[in-house]
Design a protein around this nucleic acid. Structure first.
Lengths: 235, 235
DNA sequence: AGCGCACTACGTACGCTGTACGTAACTAGG
DNA sequence: CCTAGTTACGTACAGCGTACGTAGTGCGCT
């Protein structure tokens, strides 16, 4: 009757196996793992339906039996690496626990530099995302606040971590595919920036860049950012 | 001699006109405006080299005379809308000024929902980005801190605003191209989520979603987030 | 037991993308 | 005036997501 589906599908609502027909050669975990492997090695651009299918050793269009749209493949990937989160028994110190969560998220994103780009509230509520959120809420049990507020803090915290790590990784991730080195690109950008700054039109920016700051300790900046956000929540 | 460029180019360092040859039919501002128009109307996916060229009324490959790579087109777009920032004489109250900056950024992103996706530190230091940063630093003049710290706060602030607005807009922006309505999609996601929550595996998430919270005031949440970040900086 | 249907597998094809390359027209600097 | 560098643009290629059709397979029902 209806040619195309008039109603959207959430991949997590679609059963993996319905019983009829030949035994499937793969499952979602296999597919997600293959896609993650490709993305880790070759960046997000290496994740095409053709490549993933080849990695699995099957025809391109066979993939569509498991994953109706590429977007769903991305959801699978995010969920798969979400499973790498270590969940522990909350210590009772919610600040310490949330700090630990944030550091773990950061490590996760450093292992999978493509993750920030796929992170979006739309891809929320996958099984592992639910487990993760439940864990975060459990860590915040000592805190007396409505769940709505707690979720807001979590969103803010995750947002900040994501943004921070994305900034940290953007250059590296981008550089992968370029025909020149990161150093070269930085050199060119710095040269241009230097010219602009020397023009005198941006005195404060000039001061910021010539200021004797010493080497930036990314670790410390991250910790600072984290504490600022957490501090702000508990006056 | 050299076929392809072995050295990267920053589009802002490349002069717009070198004097020799026929008079160019467009300039960067025209091109950026056309691309922004297309993105505003049809989402970021509508911005292809072919479409932009058609919008300008020229052949596809002619665009490459002005914009060497699509990535540079994106930089032009970000810079162009960055010029919409209203810059004022700092009031002396840096908190108020930064709040105003944040609200303006938010409005900017609501006018141009594709902006968060293109925001990245890599696309930094375009002319208008420099003007914007300089202005933010000027707003922070009353604050006694090294410029490095101020830039960190700015990065954090902008990151939070970006993340927040991205979350706010992700669904809408994504929905545009889909064959079903946002309501339908939400309905399906909620239905699935309801099933998961009813399973009892995520008691706190269940409580969060059944909690009587009333309608969410996005405006208030944004203001709250902003104050948390700003508060945290000035103890 | 065996029919039928839902499922898997996959080749082909379409329209789209970014962009490398070659050619023709044009104009400012020497 | 000449010529070198630029603009303009058509053609072409490799790659993408995916719609569609066909063939084979095995579970569930009668």
């Amino acid at each position: 009757m209806a040619g195309r589906p008039a109603v959207p599908q959430v991949i997590w609502a679609r059963p993996e196996r319905t019983g009829r027909g030949p035994r499937p050669a793969f499952n979602r975990a296999d597919i997600a793992a293959a896609a993650v492997r490709l993305a880790d090695e070759g960046g997000l651009d290496a994740v095409s339906m053709r490549h993933v299918a080849a990695e699995l050793g099957c025809g391109t269009m066979s993939l569509y039996n498991y994953v109706p749209r590429k977007e769903d493949l991305h959801e699978l990937m995010v969920d798969a690496v979400g499973g790498e989160h270590e969940l522990w028994e909350p210590s009772g110190d919610w600040r310490a626990d949330l700090r630990r969560v944030a550091h773990q998220t950061r490590e996760l994103m450093r292992r999978h530099p493509w993750l920030p780009r796929l992170m979006s509230p739309v891809y929320g509520f996958s099984p592992n995302a639910l487990r993760f959120l439940e864990h975060c809420l459990a860590c915040m049990d000592p805190l007396d606040a409505p769940y709505g507020t707690k979720l807001q803090l979590l969103a803010l915290l995750n947002g900040c971590v994501t943004t921070y790590v994305a900034n940290e990784l953007a250059t590296a991730e981008r550089t992968r595919a370029l025909p020149w080195s990161e150093e070269q690109e930085n050199q060119v950008r710095i040269a241009y920036l230097g010219g602009q700054i020397a023009s005198g039109a941006y005195p404060r920016m000039a001061a910021a860049f010539t200021e004797d700051a010493g080497p930036i300790d990314l670790e410390a900046v991250f910790a600072w950012m984290l504490d600022r956000v957490l501090d702000s929540f508990a006056p």
